[in-house]
Amino acid sequence: MAASSSKTVIFAALAGNTAIAVTKFAAALFTGSSAMMSEAIHSTVDTGNQILLLIGLKRAARPASETHPFGHGLQLYFYTFVVAILIFGLGAVISISHGLDRIRAPEPIANPWVNYLVLGLAILFEGGSWWVALRAFNRERAGRPLLRAVQDSKDPTIFTVLFEDTAALTGLVIAFVGVVASQAFDLPVLDGVASVAIGGVLAVTAAFLAFETQSLLTGEAADPATRQGIAALAEAEPGVVGLNDLRTMHFGPAEILVALSLDFQDDLSAADVENTVARLEHRIRAAYPQAGRIYIEAQSLAGHAAARDALMARDGPDGRVPGAPGATTSPPTPA
């Protein structure tokens, strides 16, 4: 997903959440509804989250430097992880705490029609933001199942906004039911129960987003199809006897580091090896433009096995890298 598409989704959510947060706070203070106050806190947190995502996009776009030779793409993953923490810390915890206070000391809701009006408008505006995020996410997932698309996605901004908006719509429905039920049954405590339920929804959303983002933040490989495609290009290159090792890592949604260890024919000259490496790098970049940095080492199979055995002796047995037949998890030795 292009950065411009991500920004469009974020700006749509930011505009909607800002307007909704102000309206909800006014309604909560006017009516004294605990559920409405939880929703106001939720929308305020979401507004701050959109700002953080925009900061993350801007910082991730900075060019590589001496201190950050692989660029700043991981900044986006860091800020997305912070968003998940804020959803839990400020949204879920405060909503649950506020709801428990209201359960212990329930108070009737004054002028409930204000809540109905605000909740109706909020559902309308939040639904518009949710629809923008859903359309963008559907274009990215290309028919894949929802959870699979989230797990495979390397751009967390789209699915973060989508899940935020989904949680927001769910919270609005819960708040509406809580206000209606507290009035219909003359049980003000149900307003507090709705607030706790909203906090629960936020906690689940935060946990899911944190789990998905931490995988990207700690160094996630390219998708299996990309790894297998790069391996096939390397093994098909004239002069290459075998692929010893293949490593990939995302440094941003559209930035992949590729490291290859190749066994070349023994009769190739140094110039032939250099030409083969240059040709292979060109073919990989043509097929996978996101492969921004490619490092290829020339190493015999025996030499690679010796390096692997030495690493295993130091660190213990290791596994194999999916997508590269025979490849191990030993790191490529710099050429």
Rank of each mutant, 00 (worst) to 15 (best):
F25V: 04
A26G: 09
A27Y: 02
L29H: 11
L29D: 07
L29T: 07
F30D: 03
T31F: 01
S33I: 00
M36Y: 09
M36I: 15
M37R: 02
E39Q: 14
E39L: 09
A40K: 03
I41W: 08
H42L: 10
H42V: 09
S43E: 06
S43M: 09
D46N: 15
T47C: 04
T47M: 03
G48W: 11
G48S: 09
N49Q: 06
Q50E: 06
I51C: 06
L52R: 05
L54Y: 05
L57C: 00
L57K: 01
K58H: 12
K58T: 12
K58G: 12
K58Y: 10
R59W: 06
R59D: 01
R59K: 09
A60W: 09
A61W: 09
R62C: 06
R62N: 11
P63L: 03
A64T: 03
S65H: 03
E66Q: 14
T67I: 05
T67Y: 07
H68I: 01
P69L: 11
F70H: 12
F70E: 05
F70R: 08
G71A: 10
G71V: 11
H72M: 03
H72S: 03
G73H: 05
L74S: 14
Q75E: 15
Q75I: 12
Q75M: 14
L76V: 08
L76T: 06
Y79T: 07
Y79F: 15
Y79P: 01
F81N: 03
V82Q: 01
A84Q: 07
A84D: 06
L86K: 02
L86Q: 05
L86W: 06
L86M: 14
I87M: 13
I87S: 08
F88C: 04
G91C: 10
V93W: 11
V93F: 13
I96W: 07
S97Q: 13
S97M: 14
S97I: 15
H98P: 04
G99L: 08
D101E: 14
D101Q: 15
I103G: 02
I103Y: 07
R104T: 13
R104M: 15
R104Y: 14
R104G: 15
A105M: 13
P106A: 10
P106N: 11
E107F: 12
E107S: 14
I109R: 02
A110V: 04
N111M: 13
P112G: 00
W113Q: 06
W113H: 04
Y116M: 03
L117A: 14
L117E: 00
V118G: 01
V118N: 02
V118P: 00
L121M: 05
A122T: 15
A122E: 06
I123T: 12
L124D: 05
F125I: 14
E126N: 09
E126W: 07
W130V: 01
W131D: 08
A133K: 10
A133I: 12
L134E: 04
R135I: 13
N138T: 10
R139K: 13
R139T: 12
R141E: 03
R141P: 04
P145F: 09
P145T: 03
L146F: 15
L146T: 09
L147T: 07
L147F: 15
R148Q: 14
A149H: 10
V150Q: 08
V150R: 08
V150N: 04
Q151P: 03
Q151Y: 12
S153I: 03
S153Q: 02
K154N: 13
K154Y: 11
K154W: 10
D155T: 14
D155C: 10
D155P: 07
P156I: 06
P156V: 05
